[in-house]
Simulated assay, not measured.
Amino acid sequence: MTRIAGLLATLVLATGTQAHAGEVQVAVAANFTAPMQKIAAAFEQDTGNKAVLAFGATGKFYAQIHNGAPFEILLAADDETPAKLDQEKQTVAGSRFTYATGRLVLWSAKDHYVDGQGKVLQSGTFKHLSIANPKAAPYGAAAVETLTKLKLMATLQPKIVQGENIAQAYQFVGTGNAELGFVALSQVARDGKFSAGSGWIVPDAMHSPIRQDAVILIKGAANPAATALMAYLKSDKAKGIIRAFGYEL
């Protein structure tokens, strides 16, 4: 009888945990795809809550939120969009914080193609340079800032191909449709080393800081899973994952 009672208690406890587990709808900037997939898996394992992820350009998410999209949390690729949503009373006051600072990298899928100082940009030997849409993606805006600072924007404009977001900009380079492009370091490096190809990590002084803010949206105000995920993003485990993908904290 004691063994049966113990089994029943375990079953009730497991059922209770599942009953209290929740879901949270999360809009995630495309550059943060890989780390957020790992964080979401760890979050579910550790808390029982599930983060349902959608990936895309921050500018498009902003428009979708205003059009009634069911997102409860926004992990943006900038700090301006969450701040704007704050001002527009579309967020839970006081929930916004910077979860990562992104790094821009000039990258090629070819080994030894991009040198350590980015001088390949001045060579003119390539046909296509991929960047994300600077109007919708902060990494695209940072790429334009970098080219402008290098006084190469006018020269390279005819070679530029734009991806809708940083994921598409990366895809152009990864498939060889563009010889090189400006992408997020998190897409091409792990623990400070390029996983493939060659690249130049753009110095921070070449563009405005890519501070990436998270915020709970109005639709997530009463969802405990949303609050739990925001707290989890500040945990040591989440921070370790974020750092491993080349972000600064």
Rank of each mutant, 00 (worst) to 15 (best):
F55E: 07
T98M: 09
A54M: 13
E72I: 08
A141W: 08
V105N: 10
Y113S: 04
T91R: 00
K84N: 12
A137T: 15
A154D: 15
G68A: 02
V114A: 04
K89A: 14
I65Q: 00
R103K: 13
E88D: 13
R103F: 10
L74F: 10
A57W: 03
K149A: 15
V92N: 05
E88M: 11
T91P: 06
D86Q: 12
L104I: 04
S95T: 15
K110L: 12
K110R: 14
L150I: 11
M153W: 13
T146Y: 09
K89S: 15
P134I: 00
P70Q: 12
L106K: 07
I65R: 00
Y62W: 06
P134S: 00
D115C: 05
A100V: 14
Q122F: 09
G56T: 07
K151W: 02
A54R: 14
K151P: 02
F97M: 11
Y62C: 02
V92W: 05
I65L: 02
A57F: 05
S108E: 08
H66E: 09
I65P: 01
A142V: 06
P138V: 01
A77F: 05
Q64V: 01
M153C: 04
Q122Y: 07
L104M: 11
Y99R: 08
H128Q: 14
V120K: 04
Q87C: 02
Y139K: 03
G102D: 14
T146N: 13
L121Y: 10
L147W: 07
M153A: 13
A100E: 06
A154L: 08
D78V: 02
L150V: 07
Q122E: 14
A137E: 13
A141D: 03
A69V: 06
P82R: 00
K89I: 05
N67W: 02
A154N: 15
T58P: 10
I65N: 00
A137H: 09
E72W: 04
S123L: 09
L152I: 01
A54C: 07
V105R: 12
